[in-house]
């Protein structure tokens, strides 16, 4: 457990903490599973980044003759080949999957981030200050919870107009309450601890207490909830797009593909649901594994055996 200087250039013989990146890598390497998750995510992110270059076809080119082809089949006398089959309009599933990765990943990640940051900030403030700040924020949260999310999203999207940025904003705002409630409860627990009083006695200002005192101690559950929420956000995006309130229906997204596949599933066209489903599952699984690892990494009691 002794921390030995690894490759520190300073001449002092004092033990030095490894740089954050190095400690992260070592911890990842030891945990194995999160490493796999990181590999999967890297592939997905590369697919999102370079999808248009890799895609064998235009994701929106309809081909009525080649509609509903199962995977590994060809059409037009063997001239066109579909690795993952085609959908009801004869569009290539692989191409749509690759193009869809971009929107789904961006919407999933960014809106969880937006909702997480807003919710954590407001929840921490409510928990720390209490009083009217707490009352006001929590009543707003209650009011928001009283509305069904879809209804709220419809109102927002009608006001803001469709588009990816607004979609991210709406999906983010839809989640803030979850984070705010957890952050508030955790903050109230931490606020009474003597180390917070010690920080005040040392003369630390309130922002410093919130950021360096409380935040690191309430982050674990928030990270876990966030990693779970990525999945539900990807699906919510599909629901909103299905209603015409998200991205245009012609833009391929994983959730949208899943939504379109419903009618075909009973007819045995499994590939329409399975491939986007697997993509979402892999994304969520990877984020959960990484989130789990990250929580442990943040906790000095569990992680730093290095």
């Amino acid at each position: 457990m002794t921390t030995m200087t690894s490759s520190s250039s300073t001449a002092s013989a004092l033990p030095v903490r490894r740089s954050a990146a190095r400690r992260m890598w070592r911890s990842l390497y030891r945990a194995k599973w999160p490493l796999l998750a990181l590999a999967i995510l890297t592939v997905l992110i590369l697919a999102a980044a370079f999808g248009p270059l890799l895609a064998p076809h235009d994701p929106n080119r309809q081909d009525i003759i080649a509609r509903l082809k199962p995977p590994f089949s060809s059409a037009h006398r063997g001239h066109v080949y579909f690795v993952l089959g085609t959908d009801g309009l004869g569009r290539d599933v692989l191409a749509r999957l690759l193009y869809g990765a971009r929107i789904s990943l961006i919407v999933g990640l960014v809106s969880v981030f937006v909702g997480g940051v807003i919710g954590t900030m407001l929840g921490t403030l409510a928990g720390y200050f209490g009083g009217w700040i707490d009352d006001t924020l929590m009543r707003i949260a209650d009011i928001q919870l009283a509305f069904p999310f879809i209804l709220l999203a419809i109102i927002f999207m009608l006001v803001l107009g469709p588009g990816m940025m607004n979609l991210i904003l709406v999906l983010g705002i839809g989640q803030w309450v979850t984070y705010a409630r957890i952050a508030r409860g955790q903050t109230m627990l931490q606020r009474e601890k003597e180390y917070i009083e010690a920080a005040r006695a040392l003369g630390q200002k309130t922002p410093g207490i919130l950021f360096s005192g409380i935040l690191p101690n309430i982050l674990s559950p928030l990270v876990i909830i966030g990693s779970f929420n990525i999945a539900s956000v990807i699906l919510s995006e599909a629901a909103l797009s299905f209603l015409g309130l998200g991205v245009p229906t012609t833009t391929p997204t994983w959730g949208g593909m899943l939504a379109e596949s419903r009618d075909q599933l009973l007819a045995g066209r499994w590939w329409l649901a399975v491939f986007p489903g697997v993509a979402i599952m892999l994304t969520v699984l990877s984020f959960n594994l990484l989130g789990d690892w990250f929580r442990d990494f943040l906790d000095p009691r569990l992680a730093n055996e290095n």
Binding site: E194, Y195, A198, S212, N217, L298, P300
Partner: peptide, 14 residues
């Protein structure tokens, strides 16, 4: 300055 009673609660665990 102040020294606290509970040495387990008075140091930030992170």
């Amino acid at each position: 300055q102040i020294v606290f009673q509970d040495p387990f609660a008075s140091l930030n665990p992170r």
